[in-house]
């Protein structure tokens, strides 16, 4: 069935308004969109690693989640959801449950790329029938913008501050979608927030309804950490894709598929210029850093094209 924006957006919210996430937060937009991909009759249990999303949506005695929800700790969302999903099969087998449940967990890049990496890897390798959604905002935002292994090169964070002798984070970001794809799970996709949300919605739907483990890596900008005006979020996401900084792809049963190829690849400056965390790169003396950045984006893009047999 063709994607119908109006229809999708008119589905009831499963993450209700009234939560306390920031205006212009990509994570919340991503979570709401992923939940829309659930069939209305299907029930779900939502997992959540500790982070902004957890502390802002389930402040005792209020929850913004319409579905059953469990937060356990920072680093164990994968294992916790593994247990819930396994209990579902156990109760089904014993005839104690008729309803269909789906299992989705949300984690930021801190809880996913870093402290929760082992737990995620275990859940993926065991191929539990669940979806792990990483809302990747490229730093530990909840604790105040410290670098993570998802932080892009040269970003100014509170543990990689730009200073007289520092240009921000010195390392490239870890490519987690590729690492999870190497776990040989049935479905991995990378996406972000784009105009009609078609890409995110369709990938979420596939992730939820593909039997077995699925991983979605969603670039989800953070206005505080990236330093942009809340209203610029969609433009930033678009530029991330058009510069090939954040390519859109799927890995279906080991097959790499490029889901969008820009007609004209824009220079990386167009993406970097939108955010305060890269401001220092535009000083005249840092021209070399921009060149280095472009070379890195190009290298990764070529590598992806090769994987996708382009």
């Amino acid at each position: 069935m063709a994607y119908n924006f109006r229809e999708v957006m008119s589905k009831p919210e499963r993450l209700a308004p009234g939560h306390r996430m920031c205006a212009g937060c990509g994570g919340t937009i991503a979570a709401r969109m992923v939940l829309r991909a659930l069939k209305p009759g299907d029930k779900a249990v939502i997992g959540n690693a500790t982070g902004c999303m957890e502390v802002s949506t389930f402040m005792y005695p209020y929850t913004a989640w319409e579905d059953s929800y469990m937060h356990n700790a920072f680093e164990n969302a994968g294992a916790t959801l593994s247990g819930i999903e396994t209990a579902y099969h156990a109760l089904k087998k014993k005839g104690k449950l008729d309803e269909t449940y789906k299992f989705i967990t949300f984690g930021g890049d801190g809880g996913t790329y870093d402290i929760g990496f082992q737990s995620l890897s275990g859940a993926m390798e065991r191929n539990h029938d669940l979806v792990y959604v990483c809302y990747d905002n490229g730093a530990y935002m909840n604790t105040g913008i410290q670098r993570s292994s998802a932080t892009p090169m040269f970003a100014d964070t509170t543990t990689t501050p730009v200073g007289k002798v520092s240009n921000g984070k010195m390392q490239n970001r870890k490519d987690l979608a590729q690492i999870i794809a190497d776990h040989d799970v049935p479905y991995v996709a990378q996406t972000t927030l784009l105009t009609t949300m078609k890409d995110l919605y369709e990938k979420a739907e596939k992730a939820i309804y593909t039997p077995g483990a699925a991983f979605l890596n969603v670039m989800a900008p953070c206005p505080r950490g990236w330093r942009y005006d809340a209203s610029d979020i969609m433009e930033i996401c678009k530029l991330a894709v058009e510069t090939c900084y954040w390519p859109l792809f799927e890995v279906v049963d080991g097959q790499w598929i490029l889901t969008y190829e820009p007609k004209k690849k824009l220079p990386i400056e167009d993406f970097l210029r939108t955010q305060g965390r890269f401001k220092h790169l535009f000083k005249p003396e840092n021209e070399g850093l921009l060149e280095q950045y472009q070379a890195e984006v190009d290298r990764r893009w070529e590598d992806l094209l090769f994987r996708c047999s382009k």
Binding site: L81, S82, I84, T86, Y88, K93
Partner: peptide
């Protein structure tokens, strides 16, 4: 027996998965 066994990758995950299963309504 028809117990579902989760061969987790660490004890941190064995406790976390057991907690998830118990919260889900299972004897874990």
């Amino acid at each position: 027996i028809d117990t579902e066994f989760i061969p987790v990758e660490s004890e941190h995950s064995s406790m976390s998965a057991t907690m998830g299963a118990c919260a889900a309504g299972a004897r874990a």
